[in-house]
């Protein structure tokens, strides 16, 4: 992984690459553990682990290497705590939704829609949700995701495709039901 600042070829340089990885790792950690209180601690632990086990890195995608460690570490933490991650948001209301608040930017991050989509994401299986996080939020390639979760790239592709299909169906079903249709974007209301 070359430093994105173009200044070095290091794994743990302080240029943009480390910061970029921080966001991706933290995203993954949060979405596996669903624990806002510990997400920073656990993310830090992931980096320390990755740092300590650099010798085991055999090349390839460095961010996939980090994500694999993050994933394994999160499950270790959950096992130790003997708790399952929260997989649903339960009765969380729009007001409780932890999106941004106050600024004009909110206009672009409509909480209501985000929450509705989030509820639908909950209806995917745990692994599928992880795949969607890695693919859509962290923008990993299928090959990188395969490295992270230990599956073949083809299998990853198929699962993601099915998960998307399911999301589409869920949204359409929701749009046809008594609940308000979701506007996923630019003004088309599914009914």
């Amino acid at each position: 992984m070359r430093c994105t600042a173009g200044a070095c070829n290091e794994r743990f340089c302080e240029h943009g690459c480390l910061r970029e990885h921080e966001i991706a790792v933290r995203n993954l950690v949060y979405h596996i553990t669903h624990n806002p209180n510990d997400v920073d601690d656990i993310t830090q632990e992931v980096f320390i682990k990755a740092y300590q086990s650099l010798a085991s890195f055999r090349g390839g995608s460095f961010r996939a290497y980090l994500a694999r460690i993050a994933r394994n570490h999160c499950y270790d933490v959950l096992r130790r705590k003997r708790v399952r991650p929260e997989t649903t948001l339960g009765d969380l209301t729009v007001e409780q939704w932890p999106g941004t608040d106050g600024g004009p930017e909110d206009v672009f991050l409509d909480k209501e829609t985000a929450l509705e989509v989030r509820h639908l994401l909950d209806q995917l299986g745990e692994v599928d949700r992880e795949l969607m996080i890695l693919r859509h939020l962290n923008e990993f390639s299928y090959e990188e995701i395969a490295e992270v979760v230990g599956m073949r790239p083809g299998a990853v592709r198929t699962r993601i495709s099915r998960a998307r299909q399911k999301m589409q169906e869920l949204m359409e079903r929701r749009g046809q039901g008594e609940t308000p249709a979701i506007t996923t974007g630019m003004g088309i209301h599914r009914r």
Binding site: E22, I23, R26, N27, Y30, H31, P36, V39, D40, W97, P98, G99, T100, L109, K111, T113, A114, L115, V117, R118, L121, M132, I133, H136, L137, R164, M167, Q168, M171, I182, T183, T184, G185, M186, I188
Partner: peptide, 17 residues
Amino acid sequence: RLQQSMIHAMDAEVPAM
């Protein structure tokens, strides 16, 4: 739209760094 909505939904949930 689905892609953007999912990204926003997933991103919005992560507490601010």
